[in-house]
Design a protein around this nucleic acid. Structure first.
Lengths: 272, 272
DNA sequence: CGAAATTTTGATCACGTTCAACTTCAGTGG
DNA sequence: CCACTGAAGTTGAACGTGATCAAAATTTCG
């Protein structure tokens, strides 16, 4: 059975939000790392939601080459963005975690550039792109937050390029595990030193540009070197700092969006 | 001496813009592929520009690990985003062309995740981030356009991950050349079947995760197979379709941003 | 429980790296 | 004008890493 309901998601980060609409929504949590949102803001956002659906494990959510114009905010579950090449090889471009958006970047192009497949059962809030755009015209806050989100996405991909392009297999794997840990922690789905790993070795190898056997050996090596412990689907970092060092991992921390007042002060009116 | 002034940039695409402020500005050209901008819009954008500077060849514009909070719109010239790893290997994450933004994603993070180095002399419009944010609050159009831009950026990186992760060396190189051609064409700096290639083989090898000798041989192979012709710094595709096929290249075409009216119609008021 | 997916292990081999030398070219100063 | 310099491009030979293929062991799930 997939993980439709979070099993034991110990909260380490982001437990600060008070009684608020959307307080348990990882996407809202995410937006709140960029900007403040009033209860009313959250209500406006929720009003754009067309439907809330749950998609079963191993279904394609987006198909490469087809137009797609929804934003799906992931409330729970995991997915992967990928492309299959002529010779049948698959490259996973990135993993989609709770709080992420399916349809970024796909819905901003005339046709999606990658497919998206669910890994577990996934609970989604579906928002038609025009509805979101309409919200952005009314409340520029959201358009800005979305730019920040997209920039963060780009930064994650950039790291992924580095990972696949120039790091050794152990470094790649260590980096991936740290990235997942850090991103999960941001939405309160990881604990201090570990997390539940929902992906198979085949998926990780397709993400890292390695063969399955080699990924397996590399994972074994991380265990042998006492960098991590794995049992069930759980990853524990034995010595986080050692792993960080190995992977040269720098967590991606988004800056905050200046408030209207801050922006005005910093940028004295020069407009005509 | 670098290419401070475009030498022979034959315009193939985007010659349609009428007498307008910013008509020859590649960044404005870029924004106009997403949305309509009135002369007044362009003026507002130009008002946020703090200064226009030219940076000499081979200078670092952004340094990894340092906070950076400017947006630099590239008017002319070329640069590369990169990271150097412990062992001295360098990975180029992406190439920056006219119309691109230096500071995306760097300025949206608490500290830049990559460095940026100029390849030729580069002419930049510098805009402090708060000024741009202020503009976005006033004219949400720009915030939306920027989301689109960031999404396109993410899509380009995603392709780069695929390139480096799972494609063979020839396919990688062919894909890179097509990507550069397509992006340059979008801002009118390429011709139908070719373009001026401003990057050295070392840079391309660092972008593609290959060694210099192997990149060289791969390039030689593309020539031998009569896919391309190179002379000086000029690349000509002998048979674009064959190259496209080889690289499985799909150009990234951004969708348009719905206008306020379109957004309202498509998303009937459901607010409160 | 049985079937399928996933993980693990082993043996072989090809591809791309590495290292080194050489060529070509552009820019610079004598 | 030519010699000098350093960067960029080209070529060759040897080596090693990670792919490939195959099969077994283990886990997951219907």
């Amino acid at each position: 059975m997939g993980s439709q309901i979070p099993r034991t998601a110990a909260l380490t980060v982001a437990p600060r939000v008070a009684k608020d609409p959307g307080r348990d929504d990882p996407f809202v949590t995410r937006l709140r790392t960029y900007t403040e949102l009033s209860a009313q803001d959250v209500a406006s956002l929720q009003a754009t939601i067309e439907s809330e659906i749950t998609v079963r494990k191993r279904r394609d959510l987006v198909l490469e080459g087809y137009a797609f114009s929804k934003l799906c905010f992931v409330r729970d579950g995991f997915a992967a963005r990928y492309k299959v090449l002529r010779d049948g090889k698959r490259q996973i471009v990135g993993f989609i975690l709770p709080g992420d958006v399916v349809g970024l970047p796909g819905s901003f192009l005339d046709r999606a550039a990658n497919s998206v497949i669910t890994v577990s059962d996934v609970a989604l809030h579906v928002c038609p792109l025009p509805a979101f755009v309409e919200l952005c015209y009314r409340r520029p806050q959201f358009a800005l937050a979305f730019s920040w989100l997209a920039a963060q996405e780009a930064a994650i991909y950039a790291e992924h390029v580095i990972n696949v392009g120039r790091r050794t297999p152990v470094e790649r794997l260590a980096h991936l595990l740290l990235e997942l840990h850090s991103r999960l922690a941001m939405v309160g789905r990881a604990w201090e030193t570990g997390f539940d790993l929902p992906f198979t070795q085949e998926m990780m190898s397709d993400a890292l540009g390695l063969s399955v056997p080699h990924l397996n050996r590399t994972l074994a090596r991380l265990r042998a070197d006492e960098m991590i412990v794995m049992q069930e689907r759980r990853v524990e970092f034995t010595d986080v700092d050692a792993v960080r060092q190995l992977a040269q991992f720098q967590p991606i921390t988004p800056a905050r969006i200046p408030t209207p007042a801050e922006a005005r002060n910093a940028a004295p009116a020069r407009v005509k």
